[in-house]
Simulated scan of single mutants.
Amino acid sequence: MRDYKLDALVTPGSSVAPVLAIGGFPGVNVPAGYDSEGVPFGINFGGLKGSEAKLIETAYGFEQATKIKKPPTFKP
């Protein structure tokens, strides 16, 4: 990430969260869309230690740009 001057690593879903946590790296998962049944899915923004503020800023920017977040319509 430092070599390429990246602010965040973006991955679909939250499957990378345990890897980030084990390494002590921050991550934030935000809504990214809904499947055909209305079940929400997200993307994860991960970063280097100390990059929490930048990750929150990036995740917030994504949420504001996409306006994806809405109350779920599926029934468990």
Score class of each variant (00 low, 15 high):
T73W: 05
T58I: 14
F25N: 14
P18C: 08
L20P: 03
Y4I: 00
L20F: 07
A32P: 02
G24C: 09
D3T: 00
A59Q: 06
N29F: 04
A8K: 05
N29S: 14
R2Q: 13
G42L: 04
D7Q: 09
E37G: 13
T66D: 04
D35L: 04
R2G: 01
G33L: 04
P71V: 08
I22G: 02
K5A: 08
G42D: 03
K5P: 00
G50Y: 10
G23P: 00
K69E: 10
D3N: 01
K49C: 08
N29Y: 00
F74V: 04
V16A: 10
K67D: 15
V39C: 14
T58D: 12
S36M: 10
A21R: 15
A21K: 15
L6A: 11
V19R: 01
Y4S: 00
T73S: 07
K54S: 15
G27C: 11
G47H: 03
G50M: 11
K49F: 11
A59Y: 08
F41V: 14
K69H: 11
V10F: 01
A59K: 07
L55V: 14
V10Y: 03
I68W: 07
G13W: 04
Y34L: 06
L20D: 06
E52L: 11
A65M: 02
V16H: 04
D35A: 03
G46R: 06
P12Q: 09
Y34K: 07
G50W: 11
L48A: 15
P12R: 00
T66I: 11
K67V: 11
T73V: 05
P31V: 12
Q64C: 12
F25Y: 13
D7Y: 04
K70W: 01
E57L: 15
P76V: 00
P40G: 12
